[in-house]
Structures are given as C-alpha cells and as structure tokens.
Simulated scan of single mutants.
Amino acid sequence: MSVRVPPGAARLHAGAYVADTHNDLLCAVVARPSEQWGTFFAERWLPQLTDGGIDLQVLPVFVDDTHRSEGALRQTMRMIEAAHRLAEQNARTVALCGDGTELDAAASSGRIALVLALEGAHGIGDDVALLHTMFRLGVRVASLAHFGRGAFADGSGEDAAGSRLTRAGVRAVAEMERLGMLFDVSHLGAAGVDHVLEIAQRPVIATHSSARALLDHHRNLRDEPIRMIASAGGVVCVNFFAPFLHGEDRSVDRLVDHLEHLAAVAGIDQVGIGPDFVKEVLEETTAPCCRVTDVEGVPADAYLPGLEGPSGLPLLTAALLRRGWAEADIRAVLGGNVRRLFREQLGVPPTPFVREDE
C-alpha cells in the first residue's frame, strides 16, 4: 500500500471487501485517444485501485457541459465503450460486471469488479426507452439529474424550485426497477428524492452523499430520506469531498463524523463509501487556465490530506479503528453492505406479484 497505517489497520483493510461507488476516472480515460484507453487505465488508475484495496469500482458515465446537449449521447457512448475496452484489455485484473454472479466471479478470481453507472443521464434526454439500451450495454446504476435542471428531474442545485420528478422521470424509475437497474438519488433535488422514495418499489442507493445534519449543503441528504432509504434496504455512501463535510476542518476525522452520523440514522448495515475522487480527474481534463476554482464558494482543491485518491483508502480504516469501531462494522461500511445490495439487485428482474387468492 502506498500510505502508511498501523499494521492492524493494514491487515484489516487488506482483508476487507472494499467497494467505491463513485470515481469519475472514465472522464480522464476518454480525454485520451481511444487507442490509449486501456493502457492509460492500466498505468495510471489500476495501481491506485490496487493500492486502495478496491474490489468493486463503480464507474460513472458523466457528460460535462461542453458536450451538452448535442454531443451528450455521443460522449455517453464513448465513455461506455471506453469502459468495455479497458476491461477487455485488462481482463486479468478487472471485469465489467452486470449481476451478483459476475461480482462473485470477479472476487473469486482476484479481479476488481467494475460496474457502469449513468450520472445525470444527460445522453438519453427524456427517452425512457433508451434506459433499456443502456442496460444492454452494461449500465446497472443510474441517477437522473446532476446540479441543474434535466428532462427527468432537477438536481440539488435547483432545490429552491421544489421540483419533483417529471412524468418522464416517474416512468424512468419504473423502467429501471423493471430492468434491475439501481436508482441513485445522489445529486437529485430534495423534493425529487422525496418523490422517488414515495414511488420506489425496490431499494435505492445514494452513491456519493454525506449528511446534511452535519453540514447544510444541498449535496447532502437530510436525515428523513436517509432513514427511508435504509428502511427499504438501500445504502447511503458517504462523499469524501471536503467542502461537503465541514466548513473549515479538512481532516479524515470529519469524514468519520459523517459516517458515524449515517450509521446512527440508517443503521450500520446501510452505509457505504462513495469517495468522489475528483482531484486527479480535474487536473487531467481541465486546462490550467480554465480549472474550476470553487464549488459553492469553497476552494475545489480542498481535499482530505492523504485521501485525494484511491490509494489513501487505508487511512479511513485506520481512522475508524482509532474511533473504536468494531472490525465487523468497518468491513460492512468499506464494502460489505454495497456488495450485498449489488448482489441482490443488479440485473435482477423484480419478483412477480402474486395475489394470495390465486
């Protein structure tokens, strides 16, 4: 491992199943010529995932403003193709997975399981039928909005509008549940989260959201939705981005505060990690003259020391041990809970409803 932690923490982390539900590394991959996708991943990202002990990596397909709206579908398809190529070209070390059987096969062979996710679904407009196309291509998790307004719903940056899902958004939730695609509420506006939880018939996930009770930021979740997600069998995965954790203190202890709050509200078995490691992605994809300098007025380079990328994940395990967490609870939060949810839900059609009198 590339970071130094006490031997006990190192052993625990190495033996745990670690699931990261949000890393935008595909954005950095597709910024290069297509013939370099597989090798760039192998040289730049695979060592970091290995150092971090990651066993399951969710790969968001995110389309930024420069590709909207005319180029959104094309960029979506490029990113999905990049994921397939990097998996094929690194087949000894990673595997693109679509269901629990494939996740287990990856684990038993010592490979990192990769799971494709749509972040914002900008590439499909309001065409619900294209969710089936995305599913055919391997997508197993999807959110319907980012910061702004979309065809299916409003993102959290539009909370003042108080918007619920559009009619197309309601149909999208039903289609995702029919397919066995997990709905992601991260980035969705507060009213939209409430709406989803009213109509959802299957568990949902928050892939990278922290606790609003600890920091009142629109990207964080309120306690009541956290409870509802947990009670329905879903998982809330904490975001490591420092401006979403604390106003001033950029430390791993503030991250643990959010994990402890989520565990207290949702229960230890419904909490995971979705670090959102964006530092290197932003450096790779944005020219120095044009880099984002702030998010909601907070410096965008305010990352947790040592946790700027996947290699630092053992530091979280060490911090949890210092706080007195039980090893079983640490294993659950590091990835056991997400693995259980994914094995139960990904690619699995819903159980048919049978009337008792039939």
Rank of each mutant, 00 (worst) to 15 (best):
D64F: 13
A113G: 09
F41C: 08
V29A: 04
L304D: 00
R291Q: 15
L49T: 02
L346S: 04
P314H: 05
D104P: 02
V295R: 03
I199A: 07
D55K: 11
H146D: 05
S209R: 02
D294H: 11
V338W: 01
L179I: 01
L245F: 10
F152M: 06
S34Q: 11
H208C: 05
V193S: 03
V256R: 06
P305F: 13
L56A: 03
I268S: 03
V235E: 09
T207D: 05
D357N: 12
V333H: 01
G125I: 12
D294A: 15
R340A: 12
P203D: 06
A91M: 01
C97S: 05
D51T: 08
A83S: 07
V292L: 14
A190L: 07
E296W: 08
R32I: 14
V58K: 05
V30Q: 02
V354A: 13
P352S: 05
R164W: 15
A129D: 13
L304W: 00
L316D: 05
R250Q: 05
A9E: 12
I80V: 15
A83T: 09
A95P: 02
D357L: 13
G192Y: 09
A206R: 10
F135I: 00
Y17F: 01
G138C: 06
N239P: 09
L59H: 07
L49D: 04
D253K: 06
L221H: 05
F183E: 13
K279F: 11
R343I: 10
C27F: 13
P350Q: 04
R78L: 12
L214H: 08
E284V: 10
E308A: 15
D357F: 14
A151N: 10
V271T: 09
P299I: 05
S34W: 08
G312Q: 05
G324L: 00
F135G: 00
L56N: 02
H67P: 01
L221G: 05
S108E: 14
L245D: 03
S34A: 14
T351K: 10
H261K: 07
A107R: 06
C237V: 09
V173Q: 00
Q75R: 15
R68T: 13
V128K: 12
F40E: 00
R254C: 05
L307C: 02
R92Y: 06
G169T: 12
Y303R: 04
G309A: 12
V173F: 01
T285V: 15
L221I: 06
A300M: 07
R167Q: 13
N220Y: 10
A95R: 14
R219T: 09
R171E: 15
R74A: 15
F240W: 09
C237F: 08
S251D: 02
G53N: 11
F183A: 13
P243G: 07
A151C: 11
P7W: 00
E327A: 11
A160Y: 08
L118M: 15
V271Y: 01
P349Y: 14
G71I: 09
L320W: 02
E198I: 00
G138V: 06
R32A: 12
G150D: 08
L259G: 04
N23Q: 11
G192P: 14
R227T: 12
G335S: 02
H13K: 13
T285H: 07
P7D: 14
A91G: 04
V252D: 00
T76G: 07
G110S: 02
